[in-house]
């Protein structure tokens, strides 16, 4: 299809100014009148302004008994493209010992949420908030699984406070057993 011949014809300067001015005036008028128009409603799949599929800040699921759903199988670590998840399996507890995410490397792609077979990790609707340079960007279980309703506001793991959990990560047991799988 060839574009129409009239598209290549030039208007004069006066006619051009008139055309643009009239278009802008009509645009302005439409904007004023839109104040009186009824609200069209939101798009499908969106609550408030953000959609339900928004990939925000990460969180570890806590089940109804108050325990961590994650079993430390390591599937999310295997699938993460930027290698920002670090899981340490605790053989004594037979569960996850430490779960660290480097928040500055995370690309919020959603592959870990898709990979977990028991919905142990998920993206919430909260925006990952900016922070100062000096704060701790390597977050652990205490932050990821924090629930105000547990343990009188101290969160899931009452024996750890926020700083202690993150600074003690060198002392955790460093084993990960490949054979341990989730048996939900």
């Amino acid at each position: 299809m060839i574009l129409k011949r009239e598209l290549y014809q030039r208007h004069g300067y006066f006619k051009g100014i008139l055309i643009v001015l009239s278009l802008q005036m009509s645009r302005l008028l439409k904007m004023f009148l839109s104040v009186f128009k009824k609200d069209e409603g939101r798009l499908a799949g969106s609550e408030d302004q953000r959609s339900s599929k928004y990939k925000g800040m990460l969180a570890l699921t806590v089940n109804k008994q108050g325990e961590l759903q994650c079993t430390g199988c390591g599937l999310c670590q295997a699938v993460c493209p930027s290698d920002c998840i670090d899981i340490q399996f605790d053989k004594k507890k037979k569960g996850v010992g430490a779960f660290n995410i480097d928040l500055l490397r995370c690309v919020f792609c959603g592959l870990c949420e898709e990979a977990c077979p028991i919905d142990g990790i998920r993206h919430t609707a909260e925006i990952p908030s900016p922070g100062h340079f000096e704060q701790n960007w390597n977050i652990g279980i205490a932050t990821l699984a924090y629930r105000k309703s547990l343990n009188n506001g101290k969160g899931l793991l009452s024996e750890y406070t926020f700083d202690q959990q993150d600074l003690n990560q060198d002392n955790e047991t460093v084993l990960q057993d490949e054979g341990q799988t989730s048996n939900a």
Binding site: L103, P130, H132
Partner: peptide, 12 residues
Amino acid sequence: VYIPGCPPSAEA
């Protein structure tokens, strides 16, 4: 200041 996200949303 660091702003995490890829890309960070406008509100962030």
